[in-house]
Design a protein around this nucleic acid. Structure first.
Lengths: 327, 327
DNA sequence: GTCGATTGTGTAACCGATTACACACAATAT
DNA sequence: ATATTGTGTGTAATCGGTTACACAATCGAC
């Protein structure tokens, strides 16, 4: 590996000059600049990030903490984040907290020892105070929004209204919302959106809660639908929940969308793969991730944020788990 | 942040002694050891990984390169790898190559600058020579097996025989293998297993190729089944392909497993989520990832490997996309 | 009693960058 | 003529560890 010293010697200048060139700081003559450039090319020099980090106390690495990598929403957002970060010269360490606070804490501690530049956090395990005491740039993604740390998320309430309105427009007579855990902020907001949308309508409604897991959602839906056979429309708190619901309906010998119509939330690609494919509220996952990275990099570089809390507008994707009334 | 100097001062010894204690190298008196231990605790000292890496030229970080993070197989294996690595004190950088050689190369170069300890590579974009010239510990996962680099993979041929035999035992009369791309080694091996299993049987067989993507697989299956309506059994080269096949069958107005039975390959959790759930050959994904990490760490630590090429035995998971003859 | 091996510790160089500081020189202002 | 400012560059300290080397002390062996 060639070092900055090799380059300096080869270009006939001091290491300080080379370093100034690399970081575009201070004055450099045209001549020195040219020499350094050719030396770097000839020697195929790449600065050692570790040595650089030891001085600057900052690695070109960001940590992404997700609660469950097996939930397909998170690989999709991870991909967007990674893609954007790589373009900006950062690499991403993906950390799976398994929804366990101690794992999350362990990751954060470990990565601080590696001079991580910042975190994007899509978890709500640890307390806000903990993050506040961290003293590391961070952006919250899709989870907590308490005003203290910058955040980016889908406009969950609007999205839920969008999805519920559509379901109603498809002519359902008795509607259920199978939401995610209400202590998870987006799940709560989506439920609020649902309630707002059905408010004043002359439609029988139910709200039940389920974890963001396929199997539990299936069970919850199975029980609900067995108890209330009149339900003909379901707004699910996430696409994974919606898919669990589909299976429950299938087990009950009913059909989607003929007997029961479903609208999901997320817009993960899995929604296209299931049969019937899923009508859903699309969070615009790529944009969500991209925005989070850009915000984080601004914070890292000490720039002002235009907005502390960004909400990405969701949109509706109509597929085969609903059927329009006119048809 | 407390440094090794602080600890040394507090414990009344030199930094060298503290360092020796930390690395369990050389002689240390019981007394010094005790002092250092209490000092570390009192000061809440954690060694700075970056500084350490600058000396040792090695980070406690491993790079995992996958071709497509949106393919659910890879998050599952990533989770296993991350889990195992974290237990051993390593963090994982997950890199998504998008099946593009230049992205893969860019990751490798970037990470070498960060003194990455080693790579686990689940891609076959770059040439073997490139890896050979890398001079970094690496383990190939589920892809190339050319004898030059250590590898771990499912015993694909056996697995394919297992799956095909089962399909045959379910009474299918005309069977198709919709394989992954034949230039991808495991896909090729699975096809070989399929051919071996049907050899000599008096069953009409077809073999067609499809990318490991849901939509293309759906199209391939649709065309194949339209052309050969007699097909009543399909062995898919992966679970994602199998799910595409399911959709094609559904579009054709046929039913799984009554009209056509399907066996997939991988054992991803998605297989449980679709309707009907998927009978499949389970690669034992967690074990695959765990083994890869353990092998890599041995190489990093300069130990001898028991076996250069590990093959994990697959097993069959029977679900609802097949039906046993007796029933 | 001297020798060599074993045990224990400290000093200082080193890993490869960044950067404060000093210094030199030219151009401009007073 | 002198002071000030703007350019351009090099020396050396620093980041926080690791480790080669030197040196002491202790111990059993001959």
């Amino acid at each position: 590996m060639t070092t900055i010293k090799d380059v300096a010697k080869h270009a006939g200048v001091s290491v300080a000059t080379v370093s100034r060139y690399l970081n575009k700081k201070g004055y450099i003559s045209e001549e020195a600049k040219k020499n350094i450039e050719t030396s770097i090319k000839q020697l195929n020099y790449r600065p050692n990030q570790v040595a650089r980090s030891l001085s600057t106390k900052r690695m070109q690495t960001i940590g992404l903490i997700v609660p469950d990598i097996m939930n397909p929403f998170f690989p999709e957002i991870a991909r967007a984040i990674e893609d954007t970060a790589l373009k900006e010269g950062y690499t991403v360490i993906l950390c799976n907290s398994d929804e366990q606070a101690h794992k999350e804490r362990q990751y954060i501690e470990t990565l601080k020892q590696k001079y991580i530049a910042g975190f994007i956090i899509a978890t709500n395990q640890l307390e806000r105070e903990y993050y506040a005491g961290l003293n590391v740039p961070l952006v919250l993604l899709d989870r907590i929004t308490d005003g203290k740390a910058p955040s980016v998320s889908s406009h969950n309430k609007n999205g839920a209204v969008l999805g519920t309105d559509y379901l109603v427009s498809c002519g359902v007579k008795e509607i259920a919302c199978i939401s995610g855990p209400q202590n998870v902020v987006p799940a709560y907001e989506r439920t609020q959106g649902f309630l707002k949308a059905v408010e004043g309508l002359n439609i029988k409604t139910h709200v039940v809660e389920s974890p963001f897991h396929f199997k539990e959602a299936e069970k919850t839906a199975f029980d609900l639908l067995s108890a209330h056979p009149g339900i003909d429309g379901i707004f699910a708190g996430s696409d994974v929940i919606a898919i669990g619901v589909q299976r429950a309906i299938h087990r009950l010998g009913l059909s989607v969308p003929d007997d029961i119509q479903i609208v999901g939330y997320d817009g993960i690609s899995l929604g296209e793969m299931v049969t019937p494919s899923l009508t859903t509220v699309d969070q615009n996952i790529y944009q969500l991730g991209e925005t989070a990275v850009k915000m984080l990099l601004k914070i890292i570089e000490g720039q002002e944020l235009d907005k502390e809390h960004v909400m990405i507008a969701p949109s509706l994707i109509v597929r085969d788990s609903t059927k329009e009334k006119s048809k």
